[in-house]
Simulated assay, not measured.
Amino acid sequence: MVKDTSSKQAIERCITNKYFSVAYLCNEENTMDIHIHDCYEMCFCICGDKHFLIDNKFYDIVSGDLFVINQFESHYLTKINQSALERIVIFIHPDFIKTLSSGHTNLSTCFTNRTQGFTHRLHLTTEQQNSFHFYTDKITSVDSYGSDIIEKACFMELLVMINRIYIDNFDLNTNENDSKQEQPIEQIIQFINQNICKPITIEYLAKQFYLSDSYICRIFKSATGTTINKYITARRISIAKSLLSSGTSVSDVYSQSGFNDYSNFLKAFTKAVGVPPKKYALHSSS
């Protein structure tokens, strides 16, 4: 398997082939804005000193952290341009992972279990980090007879390992909040998510927290790396994608996800996802 050096290239390869792709990222092109894509993502951080904003959770990144993200979760890696963040990212098409799972083993558990107490972040031990490197190196280096079978087998072993770690970690953290929350950023993010289906403006948020418009924008951007409006739009697109995938009609989705009219919804959704909502709904149900 080719090891990509661009996340955008790897995402496109994953979605086009309905398979999985591996990217080694260090001196990458400018990181994407807060975004959502139609594939699962495992992001293994070789060095830390960054932050990860995933939906309504804000994480510090430590060397050895692995993040598991599904196709409905908006995410943004902050402050990447100030210094390089070395990482290995694996993108996986949800349909492909279904073909690998069995009646006893659901290999998408780490991406789909989003009950109370879950965390996107798994901190791998030194032994687990070595295993992760072993599997990804073998997947991207094998080039001989049977390479396709070896590639798939290694990938399945890697998924089994990550899901075991996730399940064990979930049991340990059921009553804990693993995300990094900062004051007043914690309260702002929580308030936005609690009111995401209602009209939310900068002025309204500022009044809720007794802050000036400029100050609330500045502290949010400083802490998360993105703007309030981009964050709100991304969260609404996440909700819209989930509703469309569950069969909710397009005419109901735009209001249920917080957009004030269909034209705004159509424009924002198409820009973020790459296809109009009706086409996305048709593809998701096929």
Rank of each mutant, 00 (worst) to 15 (best):
I200L: 12
I46D: 09
K271D: 07
L25Q: 07
I200T: 09
S63L: 07
D252C: 04
Q82A: 02
I232K: 00
L100Y: 10
T227Y: 11
L124T: 12
Y215Q: 10
T78Y: 13
D49S: 11
N193S: 02
L211V: 04
E157L: 12
I239Y: 03
L100W: 08
T99A: 12
R164F: 04
R235S: 11
Y210R: 10
D261L: 00
Q190F: 06
S63D: 15
T126N: 12
L266V: 00
E151T: 12
P184Y: 10
K57H: 11
F91N: 06
K221I: 14
A84G: 04
I192A: 04
D33Y: 04
E29K: 06
A10G: 09
N56K: 14
H123I: 13
P184M: 09
S179R: 13
S245V: 08
M156P: 01
Q208Y: 08
Q256G: 03
L124M: 14
P199A: 03
C26R: 15
H75R: 14
I165C: 06
R236T: 05
G64P: 08
V62Q: 09
N177Y: 08
M42P: 01
C26S: 12
Q183R: 01
N193V: 02
F111P: 08
R236L: 10
V273G: 02
D137S: 11
I69C: 10
I54S: 11
I11K: 13
L122N: 01
F52I: 10
L282F: 14
G274N: 07
V275Y: 02
F44A: 13
T174C: 07
L77S: 15
R164N: 12
E73T: 15
V142A: 01
C154Y: 12
A268V: 06
F44L: 10
F20H: 03
T5M: 06
A10H: 09
F52K: 01
V22F: 03
R121E: 11
F209L: 11
S6H: 14
A223M: 11
A268C: 15
I216C: 09
C45F: 15
F67E: 09
N130V: 00
I88E: 05
L243Q: 14
N260T: 04
S255E: 13
Y280R: 00
I149K: 04
K57C: 09
V250F: 09
I15D: 09
E41M: 10
K207R: 03
N106P: 12
K180D: 01
V273H: 06
I185A: 13
I97N: 00
R235M: 15
C26G: 03
T248I: 02
Y204R: 07
E28A: 15
S74P: 05
S286A: 00
Y76V: 08
Q128E: 15
H123M: 13
E151V: 11
I165F: 05
G64R: 04
A240E: 14
C45W: 01
L77N: 01
T226L: 03
L211W: 05
T105K: 04
P199D: 08
I167W: 03
T119M: 07
D49I: 01
L172N: 01
D33N: 14
T248K: 00
L243P: 09
F259H: 13
E41P: 03
I189N: 07
N130E: 07
I92V: 14
I15A: 02
Y215E: 12
I189E: 09
T31I: 02
H123Y: 08
Q82L: 11
A234Q: 05
H93Y: 11
I200N: 10
F132N: 03
K180E: 00
I228G: 06
Y24G: 04
Y76C: 01
F259S: 10
